[in-house]
Nucleic acid binder design. Structure first.
Lengths: 266, 266
DNA sequence: AGCTATTTGTTCGTATGTATA
DNA sequence: TTATACATACGAACAAATAGC
């Protein structure tokens, strides 16, 4: 008897209503939606239910919620392009590689983090045991040592941030008497294991932990775009990889060969 | 008196504890975590708070929650590769293009959706006004007509699904007397607007609406990997784009040129 | 097949804290 | 300072899915 639609949970219905409103252009980017209490009244429900619906849309990247201010339609920024598969394959983390050459700056956050040291010091490698991820990509046992380098870069105009990191199989750059200097990693590997080959991939994942703050991402609704360039020796064994982690709402990866309004070659 | 640290919300603390457990390998992929009631007791809190913490980790892609069964450590499937920037540029949605040639099958879901019609009918274009997204990519006014084609493909072995869709500026494939047949879209555009150029990009976004079910994605914690190939005429004007939407935990995009265990060329 | 216990899902009410204008 | 708006938290009740007997 005139039963309502059926299964759908109330918060899903409401999320659907709000999503339709948003996609139909009822709100302008940046515009505030009615408050939670108002919405609860409008839809004749409770605040927790409204909050669940809003959380859903925030998780879809459509809304952002600001404590004490309100809930807003999220503006979609233009995406910058990260170009992949381009030669020559420079070491983006070499101390001699200046981000300014690429139109980027070292991130403020990086400067703050490296309080006791000169900023450039950050580009020196950390010798550390490989985690499950790095080990899998490099085809080594988990725990085998790698040289880890990283830097946060920031796009001066948009202030968008990226994290560039590199993992090198430690054995290959540790001499018996003395380690290879990081600025010579690539040339050393080329001469000892070359000719080198490269493959580049892009994938997406959800960020967590410090990555969210380090890249200044919205905590929800923004995936991480990971562009990864793997260096292989002449026999196809992985030696190193450099990856760029970037907020998925502000960057895209492009195959080489087009004009490219941008930026960065991996 | 002996107040705890300070700022952090209780559910964040608990999420951090659980995340640490997961990343430290306290659980095996697929293994069930303690129930919500048990966790609430363990952490001396309420079930809603536990649920918030679990929802956070599910949103990070670490856990999956199954109604009536429990909460489980999410297994990370191997990623299949979508190759981009490769020639020749075939029309993946031409009726003459058989998914089986690429090692794929039309998705079961597509068959079900096309109940009244033959499955191949789905590859016929829908003439429809462009939405904000398509209009922006094609550089046309929102609402200007486009030819929309799509197909769901499924990888037979992994059962992973992708959505391939294409938007063509309608004016270019509508004759005065008769429309261009979809299997001749590409050759028609080549002859009227060629020589054609192409650019390919990949980006990430959060899925919503029917995409989640259509691609059989977990509702939370999985971004969408969108690989998009844009066709440009000799003057650089966009004519068409084909995009592949794929679950971000099961696919990655790769620049052409490597061996590739794979699949599909865009 | 059916029943039951377990587990997660939904919803409400309520109270209090914190950020912002 | 005050008002508004979102954030956190608890308790409770019932619904729905699942698994085991």
């Amino acid at each position: 008897m005139a039963d309502e639609d059926k299964a759908a949970a109330r918060w899903r219905e409401i999320a659907d209503f709000l999503r339709t409103d948003v996609l139909d252009g009822h709100y302008q980017p940046g515009q505030a939606l009615p408050g939670e209490a108002a919405l609860a009244h409008t839809y004749n429900t409770s605040r927790p239910t409204i909050r669940k619906a809003i959380a859903q849309l925030a998780g879809e990247g459509l809304l952002t919620v600001a404590h004490g201010r309100g809930t807003f339609l999220r503006a979609r920024p233009e995406r910058k392009v990260i170009i992949l598969g381009e030669r020559p394959h420079v070491d983006l983390l070499s101390p001699t590689n200046d981000p300014a050459d690429q139109g980027w700056a070292l991130s403020e956050r990086l400067r703050k983090l490296s309080d006791g040291e000169a900023p450039a010091e950050q580009l020196h490698p950390y010798w550390t045991p490989s985690g499950v991820d790095e080990a899998s990509v490099l085809g080594i046992r988990r725990g085998q040592m790698v040289a880890y380098r990283y830097a946060y870069w920031q796009h001066p105009k948009t202030r968008a941030r990226i994290l560039i990191s590199s993992y090198t199989v430690a054995d290959l750059v540790r001499g018996e008497s003395e380690d290879v200097a990081p600025e010579h990693f690539y040339s050393h590997l080329e001469s000892t294991r070359g000719p080198l080959r490269w493959t580049t991939t892009a994938h997406a994942a959800m960020p967590y932990g410090s990555a969210i703050e380090d890249l200044e991402m919205e905590a929800v609704g923004t995936p991480l775009l990971v562009t990864r360039r793997l260096m292989l020796d002449r026999e196809g064994r992985p030696l190193e990889f450099t990856q760029i982690e970037a907020p998925g709402d502000r960057f895209e990866a492009a195959g080489g060969g087009d004009d490219g309004h941008v930026a960065l070659r991996l």
